[in-house]
């Protein structure tokens, strides 16, 4: 968590754009835009790569499982949406129920993930891991009850 690389790059890590800004304040914006794309493309690449590495290294197996499930839900929801746009939304109830089910399940899973995250222990004093899972099951039951009722 402590930003080591950040301190390497600039001493004032919390507000990085400021030291850059005064120097180029007088120069026109064209020079900025010429140098910016290559720079950001590079950093974005490294940033994303770093992100991925860090994620692989630090995340416990159980949480990864949850994440895979969430990714799956995103894919399913996206597919439904694309289908709805391309083919038409004729049984609108059915589309809404299906889409709502994925969104709701995603949100509930995200809640479970947040609640069981040890870093959030302080926030959720009253919610143990078992309780979080029970909540998750309860929420999912209600969600699917509504969806099945709505699907016609």
């Amino acid at each position: 968590m402590p930003p080591k690389r950040a301190s390497q790059i600039s001493p004032n890590a919390s507000v990085p754009p400021i030291p850059k800004a005064p120097s180029s304040a007088t120069s026109s914006s064209s020079s900025k835009s010429s140098s910016a794309p290559t720079q950001t493309a590079q950093t974005a690449q490294t940033v994303l790569f770093d992100l991925w590495q860090r994620y692989l290294n630090t995340t416990p197996q159980r949480v990864k499982l949850i994440d895979v499930f969430m990714a799956f839900l995103v894919v399913v929801g996206g597919l439904q949406f694309v289908y709805c746009v391309l083919v038409g939304n004729y049984p609108f109830n059915a589309f809404l129920a299906g889409f709502g089910a994925t969104v709701g399940q995603f949100v509930l899973t995200a809640s479970l993930r947040i609640q069981t995250n040890p870093e959030n222990k302080r926030e959720f004093g009253s919610v143990s891991h078992e309780r979080a899972f029970a909540d998750f099951v309860l929420g999912s039951l209600i969600l699917h009850f509504f969806c099945v009722n709505f699907i016609n």
């Binding site: 609108f92 129920a97 949100v107 509930l108 995200a110 809640s111 947040i114 995250n117 969600l143």
Partner: peptide
């Protein structure tokens, strides 16, 4: 913003919206 807020609001919205659509008068 706190994770608590996320949990409560998302749960409410996802379930509550579906619940409200069950009433025919409200519908879509």
């Amino acid at each position: 913003y706190s994770p608590r807020l996320y949990v409560s609001y998302s749960t409410w919205f996802a379930l509550g919206t579906l619940a409200s659509m069950q009433v025919p008068f409200v519908g879509f």
